[in-house]
């Protein structure tokens, strides 16, 4: 039991540590950011978790096209469902942060627009699934769309913001966050937070996947 579930325990410990430590451990005093720099521990890990979980979804879509197993498709779709939740959480925490440091919840920033469009892309994936009734056809066509859209999402989130002016650190010629602001104390909280939230996302995905498998089993004619 324990040897299989150690990563779930680890995720709980890491997330609890980063939530509590993020509020208590000292941060550098910086102009404009002030104490809102603590949002780094809550906002950035959401994006890491989202990207990783979308990557899992694409990998399982590719696997589905090779194997044709229904379970691969279920993992792909539940990964997308979980990724969308984390995308909305990332947008929400980012909007709160932007409101205090940049003066508006939605400044015209390529990274904001890019992540909103990426979320639209995955909502379109859900709509596409809804429009097809036949299960195998649905799995195949949505897997194809998922793989087709992924490279463009990578361009949207990682390449485009670096080509244009952006408020985000590390983009448009800005130095990365790590260069000036992230002192060693913050790293001790930030990296566990990223790892913890990625594990939590995976956990949510596996739970949703297992529920889907059970539902499928229930619906089968005995």
């Amino acid at each position: 039991m324990m040897y299989k579930n150690w990563w779930k325990v680890l995720s709980v410990i890491l997330v609890l540590f980063s939530v509590i430590g993020g509020l208590l451990i000292a941060v550098p005093a910086l102009p404009i950011l002030h104490e809102s720099i603590r949002n780094l521990y809550y906002h950035v890990p959401m994006w890491f978790a989202m990207i990783i979980i979308y990557l899992v979804s694409v990998i399982y879509s590719i696997k589905y096209l090779g194997s044709g197993k229904e379970n691969d498709d279920l993992i792909a779709v539940e990964s997308v469902n979980t990724g969308i939740i984390f995308g909305f959480l990332g947008l929400g925490t980012g909007m709160i942060w932007a409101n205090f440091t940049w003066g508006a919840p939605w400044p015209n920033d390529p990274k904001l627009n890019g992540s909103a469009i990426a979320t639209l892309m995955y909502l379109a994936y859900i709509i596409l699934r809804g429009s097809i009734d036949e299960e195998q056809k649905r799995a195949k066509i949505s897997a194809i769309y998922n793989i087709f859209a992924f490279p463009i999402m990578v361009v949207l989130i990682f390449v485009l913001p670096r080509l244009t002016d952006s408020l985000h650190p590390g983009n448009g010629g800005n130095p990365g966050f790590g260069a000036y602001d992230l002192d060693s104390n913050m790293r001790y909280v930030f990296y566990p937070a990223v790892l913890g939230w990625i594990l939590v996302a995976t956990w949510i995905m596996t739970l949703r996947y297992r529920i889907r498998v059970l539902e499928n089993k229930n619906n089968q004619i005995q």
């Binding site: 379109a124 596409l128 769309y145 859209a149």
Partner: peptide, 25 residues
Amino acid sequence: IASKAGNNGTLMAILSFPVIIPLLM
């Protein structure tokens, strides 16, 4: 993809807009 999924124009627009926006920008 859209033609395999029921041939409607709405689906074509929904699927293609998010994908074309980075190129359009």
